[in-house]
């Protein structure tokens, strides 16, 4: 019997499938406006990659903003233990998880065996979260995935003074219109967001190893910036960083299967 974890986020939905303590497959899709459909599609995607059918799934745990709407999940669990356990699975030396998703940033202090000791959350303000990048990538007319590599070409990052995503968007467009180099603008944006993330991490306490998860962990510019602000090196998981929550959920599902 296989275990599954389904993480329905604000921007993307992820499903991870496990058997005997190993990840067999995973799938990531956009959530759109119907979380229950997204969950089903993500599950279908992961199952088909593993050449399995839904009947093979023994238990599924759901998590994430839209996780309560997953009809095929046996249980819903908060994102915090899922992120914590999921990260621990890949990097047992983890001390702090920094999860930067679409709509929220979480800093989690991790204890023994991936337990959650404490956490800090920002889900009120879009600045310092993944959404900031979506807005800016669109304003700059670059692809989200290019933000990281482009920023690395910068020799002198420009300072972005606006703290608000909406105002920063105008500031960035002004800088572009003034003829400033786009790589310097992007580097400045990364610095800006990284500094907000750093605040949150300092608040929960910096305990190494610090591991970054969530979609924004794909942005090498933010990682390097964050390393600068925090003064420690930052690790990332060896899989797509958005799936850590789903992996954690699938670990909890596996535990459920073992106990029955």
């Amino acid at each position: 019997m296989i275990a599954a974890g389904c993480d329905v986020g604000s921007l993307t939905t992820k499903v991870a499938i496990m058997k005997d303590g190993a990840i067999i497959s995973y799938h990531v899709i956009e959530t759109g406006f119907k979380p229950d459909l997204a969950a089903k599609d993500a599950m279908d995607g992961a199952l088909s990659k593993a050449n399995l059918s839904f009947d093979d799934v023994g238990y599924c745990v759901s998590t994430g903003d839209g996780g309560k709407n997953v009809s095929f999940a046996g249980r819903y669990v908060s994102q915090l233990p899922c992120l914590s356990k999921g990260t621990y699975f890949f990097i047992p030396s983890v001390g702090t998880v920094v999860d930067v998703g679409g709509n929220a940033t979480r800093a989690i202090s991790v204890g023994k065996e991936g337990r959650v000791l404490s956490y800090r959350l920002n889900d009120k303000c879009a600045a310092g979260g993944g959404r900031f990048f979506d807005v800016l990538a669109e304003a700059l007319e670059v692809k989200l995935d290019d933000l990281g590599p482009l920023s690395q070409q910068s020799k002198s990052p420009l300072e972005i003074t606006s703290q608000c995503t909406v105002f920063a968007e105008s500031e960035v467009i002004s800088l572009l219109n003034e003829g400033k180099d786009i790589v310097d603008i992007i580097a400045g944006v990364n610095q800006s967001i990284a500094s907000r993330i750093a605040s949150l991490v300092r608040n929960v306490g910096i305990k190494e190893d610090v591991v970054m998860t969530g979609g924004v962990a794909k942005n090498i510019g933010v990682i390097k910036s964050l390393e600068g602000w925090l003064g420690v090196s930052i690790k990332t998981v060896p899989v797509a960083p958005q799936i850590v929550g789903a992996v954690g959920a699938s670990l909890l599902a596996e535990k459920e299967l073992q106990e029955t």
């Binding site: 406006f33 303000c125 879009a126 959404r131 995503t165 909406v166």
Partner: peptide, 18 residues
């Protein structure tokens, strides 16, 4: 419900879709 203009935008877009 969101205080933030960006998050509020998503709420509104979701309402429109519904």
């Amino acid at each position: 419900t969101s205080m933030c203009s960006i998050y509020a935008q998503t709420e509104v877009a979701s309402s429109i879709a519904q």
